[in-house]
Amino acid sequence: MSFGLVNVPVRLFSATENHDVQFRQVHEKDGGRIKYQRVCAIDGEEVPYSDIAKGYEAADGQMVVLTDEDMKSLPTRSTKEISIEKFVPSEQIDPLLFDKSYYLEPDKTGLKPYVLLRDALEKADRMALVTVSVRSRMTLAVLRVRDGVIVLQTLLWADEVRTPEFESLSEETHATAKELAMASSLVDSLSGDYEPEEFEDDYAEAVTALVATKIEGGELTETPDATGEETEVVDLLAALQRSVDKAKAAKGGSGTSDASGAQSTTTGDGTSAKKAAKKTSTTTAATTKAAAKKSTTKKAATKKAATKKAATKKAS
């Protein structure tokens, strides 16, 4: 994070997480998961991921196919710097522009300038307008202070905010003085402070309770092994391995590679938020491999038991 002539090494951590209830699409008859295939709309054939390119649909419906070389020619920014452009009054940033939020943790060597910037922002009641590279694309963001921590919040571009055009509101219609007085009285009667703990996601709680009730009542569906699922896992691991090999080849076989596709925004001393994502990806791959091995062992044990039972029956 560049603050004048001072560079502050920081690490980015996502400030929010999604707690929405996640459902799977399944076949009602047997509980099998619904899978989607990448199929060409022209010949109806399934298309492997390696043959899929980016396409831009023109206004007349024609498709422009963009190759990897075309994408490389586009302007990108891979800088590791969060550059402060200016300090703007907080009220000038419309909350509608806010996108994703990240906490900035200072490195031990940059603690003092970090605290200096934090305190300066709080005292001035301003936000720092910055440019930052996210996924190789430059975007605007602001730095503000929340609970003693500097928060980086990316912004939408101005043309990404829609202009409301409602014909019903175009007329010169206003409330009467009596109506406004009654509305003001209602506002006063319901006035109070925002207390987050007063509100709960009752939908998520209800779904959790419903699922628990069904489990306790034995309403579970035994789903058989999905056909071709093991092959898909092998293909995925193979694809990841090819990606790693390709990245190593591009670097001359030195260094480490990240095939997880995690965000690679890095700041200051080169540390980044994608380390946690890379660790999660490694753990997931190990878990998948262990599950596949366990499934294979279970099948072998079942087959062996069946053979033994048949032999016993024949002997009797």
Rank of each mutant, 00 (worst) to 15 (best):
I215H: 01
T231Q: 13
A226G: 03
E200I: 11
R137M: 07
T139K: 07
A183G: 15
V161H: 04
Y203A: 04
E232W: 13
A247C: 03
V244I: 07
A158V: 08
V145D: 10
D225G: 12
D225Q: 12
V151H: 05
T163K: 09
V149P: 09
G228W: 00
D225I: 13
S136E: 15
E197F: 00
P224G: 09
T221S: 08
S184F: 03
A181I: 01
K214H: 14
A249R: 02
E216T: 03
M182V: 10
G255I: 03
G218E: 00
E167T: 13
S185V: 14
L240V: 06
L140K: 09
E232F: 04
A177P: 04
L220A: 08
E200V: 10
S168V: 06
D147L: 04
Y203H: 01
M182F: 05
S243P: 05
A209M: 06
D188L: 13
Y194L: 04
G218A: 14
S243G: 09
D245C: 05
A158N: 07
Q241C: 04
R144K: 08
E167M: 07
A209S: 09
L156K: 00
L236A: 07
K248A: 05
T176P: 01
R242E: 15
E167V: 02
L143T: 02
S189G: 08
G148D: 05
M182A: 14
K251C: 04
S254C: 12
R242C: 10
G192D: 01
T227S: 13
E167K: 14
D193H: 06
P224H: 01
T223I: 06
E232M: 12
A175S: 03
A181Q: 10
T139P: 02
T221F: 04
S168N: 08
L240N: 11
L237N: 15
L237H: 14
G253Y: 10
A247H: 11
V145W: 07
S254A: 14
S136H: 06
T227V: 15
G192Q: 01
L210P: 05
P224Q: 01
D188Q: 14
E229A: 13
S184C: 15
E198I: 10
R242I: 13
A239F: 03
V142G: 00
A175F: 14
D202S: 15
L143F: 00
A141V: 03
L180E: 00
T176L: 09
T223W: 00
A177R: 12
E222M: 07
G253H: 08
A250V: 04
A175M: 13
G148Y: 01
G228K: 00
L169R: 06
D188N: 09
T208A: 15
L152R: 00
V151N: 14
V145Q: 06
S170T: 13
P196L: 01
D202V: 12
L190N: 08
T208F: 09
S170M: 15
M138K: 11
T221G: 02
V207C: 10
V211A: 08
S168G: 10
I150V: 08
T223S: 12
D245P: 01
L156W: 10
S243Y: 08
A226C: 04
R242P: 07
K178D: 15
F166H: 15
T223L: 06
E229I: 09
H174S: 14
R146Y: 11
T208G: 13
T223V: 04
L240S: 13
G217E: 09
P164Q: 03
V244T: 04
E198H: 07
V187C: 11
G218M: 04
D235K: 11
A247M: 12
L155F: 02
A250F: 02
